[in-house]
Amino acid sequence: MKLTDFETMRAQELLIMRASQGLTAAEADELAALGVADNESFDTAGVMIELATKHDDELPTDLADKIFAAAVAKSPTYNASATAPAVPAVAAVLTAPVLQAVTANDLAARAARSPRKTLPTRTAWLVGGWATAAAAAGIAVWAFASGPNRAAGQASAQANQAAVAPNNPDAQTIPMATNTPGAAGVAGSVRWNGKAQQGVLELRGLPANEAGNQRYQLWIFDRQRDDKFPVDAGLFDASSGNTVVPFSPRVKVSDARQFMVTLEAAAGAVVSDRSHVIVVSE
């Protein structure tokens, strides 16, 4: 439709108004009738003016956490697809659904089915795998998905145990320590297989978190990423005694530099403010 000069001027006026202060419903209808409503060049100019100015105010951490929690909690799409394969470049798991508790009885039964002899000591997992050792030692463990995804969870658990096995040359053990006053006595290690992107965190003396209000969160610093944004490797709870957390971040960690555990709000943090760092790798 060819516009008259008057219509062209009116269309431009409406486009400028839309970009700067919005339109009434009647004006929006008028713009649509002129056939130029999809012209976004003035809206883009408005965006560029905005982007040409300073933006010094950081989004508050608690607000970022709230936005993230709302996004994953209220949308069935996100929950349903959290365990689906995703594009490797940025795909990662929201690890809360992956790291689910298995009971001590489950572990005991699993250990009993295993012909492997176990050692009920702290270092047992280094010999026989984390699940067996954990069951034998009676420690709190967070393992891969059970319930509806039990088969997949078991396969993931087996893959994890193989990847971090003591005889696997691709895995390495990194000590964890703390100098946080409130976490004195917490120690342990991470066994990480960068090739398989699998790991297991074992901590002794980790205080029980306040269920429903707090959770621990594991982070991996990657030399290929900005240290401001370590890879989220999962949320987990601790009851008492020792804690073993197998993990597999779905964001590829190219070159793990350091591991860190923080205490966060129950929904986890988008970007931790690191106000409660519990342990870091040495």
Binding site: H55, Y78, V90, R250
Partner: peptide
Amino acid sequence: PHVANGDAEAIKQVIARYGRLIWSM
């Protein structure tokens, strides 16, 4: 596109990438 596919990590990264701009505005 990853957010549209339900990728939770992408959601986090979008918040981290654009949070400051949107908050300031």
